[in-house]
Design a protein around this nucleic acid. Structure first.
Lengths: 238, 238
DNA sequence: AACCTAAAAATGTGATACCATTTGGGTAAA
DNA sequence: TTTACCCAAATGGTATCACATTTTTAGGTT
């Protein structure tokens, strides 16, 4: 019975959150597992199962699960079963549209605070992404891609939208990774370069368009293909 | 010592969440308290204090507090003290701008699904708001205003932005209520009527503008005045 | 053989107990 | 009077325990 959970939880150990609580550790570990697709959407888990698997008491696990549930990363079904929600075509389109809306907004709000130093750092991250593309390291690619966007939006000192953006990333998570894995070569048409150019020119309209293009090219198009393939090969939804 | 907490927690009893867990009850009750401004921003609370005040064990309280903390409705300071974050001018501007961005987006995504039945229901809610304006019942006014927006966005069956919108409401919460209380008469210039007109005409641009105007008139302008007054009379931030 | 039923195992939830850490206040010294 | 320090009280965190519900299994009935 718990064997299925064993399968779903063979997560790379978190490298060690320094002064964190156990509950934080569980949260980060589950979050990573979801992001990296280590928990196949649809498989059912139990809190006690996770606790036993991690050698912990149910208490901190329950808190972590509830947090993830309130971020819509985990579904608590009516019968006490936990699952990572399956992605449907409608939900996917909605999440991507929302991501574009919020991220272009965040980018525009960050633009007034952009400095050359920040542009340099962003360029650096973008450069490291090129290397990871060459090495086909999709985990690091995902990580650096997120770092790029996060740094851009965080330039705004009153930043309020980042938590929501991260929540969208999490919901799009298992998918986004799959997408990047399958079509890593796309990244050679690097939309981040357009973002950097728009930042240098302090051009809001161009920035907005570049962010939207980055999301569309990086997630939307390929995500649609994947969903279509899934629907063809195997029924994703009953 | 707990007297301060007593002061801050004289919350109207939740009218009874039917089959909910204790943790859910605490969450809803604290959430309401924050929304209605029953917890003065800045006053420090403790988990055990809240638990004792509510006659519960610390366990469900901690879970509820953590959830609220991850929604940025409660701040967990470094010294184990819980506070509702103080509103600053920058943060306020940022939250309102974000609210406009996300809510106009949500409205536009809902527009294709609008039916005459929905318009009727929205009109009904708007009518009840008029009555509450006359009665100066600002709590019900807040509630109905939220119901109006929530119903509009929920027409979209793949809705994904509502949780984020509610999170923004929560962060804006104590403030928003104060605003509505002070300037309830504003609502006679009813922007909701413009929203309804745009919906009837299935006019996206007009809808977007009407939602933005509703937020600007209802929150932004008066919120700015309030912040200015606070800054003048008493230092809100050191 | 199919279906209903009863017993047994397991699950989520909340209270309690225990521990390490922090806080606060009062005493002692300057 | 002020300042440094120390000890008791309180706090957050986790594990364990107890309980009500649910799920699963086994058995018996039609």
């Amino acid at each position: 019975m718990i064997d299925t959970e064993n399968d779903a939880l063979n997560i790379p150990e978190i490298t060690g959150i320094p002064g964190g609580t156990t509950q934080e550790y569980v949260y980060e570990r589950l979050r990573n597992a979801i992001m990296l697709g280590a928990i196949t959407p649809g498989t059912s888990l139990t809190m006690r199962g996770i606790a036993e698997r991690l050698g912990l008491s149910p208490t901190p696990v329950r808190e972590a699960v509830r947090r993830l549930s309130s971020e819509h990363a985990i579904q608590i079904k009516d019968n006490r079963r936990l699952t990572v929600p399956l992605m449907t075509s409608d939900r996917f389109e909605e999440l991507v549209a929302l991501r574009i809306a919020v991220e272009t907004h965040a980018a525009l709000r960050a633009l007034p605070y952009i400095s050359d130093i920040v542009i340099d750092r962003l360029t650096e991250i973008d450069g490291s992404m090129d290397r990871f593309v060459a090495e086909r390291d999709s985990d690091q690619l995902t990580l650096q891609n997120q770092a790029f966007h996060r740094m851009l939006y965080s330039v705004n000192p009153a930043q309020a939208s980042l938590p929501m953006i991260e929540s969208i990333w999490l919901q799009l998570g298992p998918f986004q990774r799959q997408v990047i894995t399958e079509v890593a070569e796309y990244y050679q048409i690097d939309r981040h370069k357009e973002v950097l150019a728009a930042l240098s020119a302090r051009d809001g309209a161009a920035l907005s368009a570049a962010i939207a293009n980055d999301i569309v090219d990086g997630v939307l198009d390929t995500g649609r293909k994947l969903l279509a393939a899934e629907a063809g090969g195997e029924a994703g939804q009953p």
